[in-house]
Computed example of a mutant assay.
Amino acid sequence: METEFTPWLSLGGGMMIGASAVLLMATNGRIAGISGLTSRIFARSTDAEARGVSALFVLGLLLAAPIWLLVSGEWP
């Protein structure tokens, strides 16, 4: 039984996710948890910068697959 598991691509993807989480913590002091990011987008008491960073991070998560389709020509 053959699978399409690609350990190097999986490792690269995991490293990119980890790097983005570390970058968010280093630059903004915030943890990159999706529930925290989403709550910051809709919270009334959040400052505009935190709301923008959270919105861009979530947008990046949503656009990752379509961007991959444009770059590689196939869905991930």
Rank of each mutant, 00 (worst) to 15 (best):
A19Q: 15
I17M: 14
G33Y: 13
P7M: 02
A55H: 13
L69E: 13
M15C: 06
S20I: 10
S45L: 01
S72D: 07
T38M: 04
L61V: 12
T3K: 05
S39C: 01
D47T: 09
I67H: 06
L56Y: 14
F42I: 07
N28Q: 14
L11T: 12
L63I: 12
I17A: 14
W8P: 00
R44A: 07
S54L: 02
E49C: 00
G12D: 12
G52I: 10
G13C: 07
I17R: 15
G73R: 03
G12T: 10
F57Y: 15
G73L: 03
S72F: 15
R44Y: 09
F57L: 09
M16Y: 14
S10N: 11
G12F: 15
T3P: 13
I34N: 06
V53Q: 04
A64V: 04
V58M: 04
A48C: 06
A64H: 07
A26L: 07
D47S: 07
L59P: 10
S54M: 02
W68K: 03
E49K: 09
L59V: 10
L37H: 03
I31E: 02
P7K: 02
A55F: 15
A21N: 06
G18R: 05
L69D: 12
M1W: 10
G60Q: 01
G52Q: 15
F5H: 09
G29Q: 01
S10K: 12
A32L: 01
M1L: 05
T38V: 07
G33P: 02
V71F: 15
S45P: 09
F42R: 01
T38D: 00
P7S: 04
M16D: 08
A26G: 08
L37T: 01
G33Q: 05
L23H: 13
L24S: 05
V53F: 05
L23G: 00
L24K: 03
L61Q: 11
M16T: 11
A50P: 09
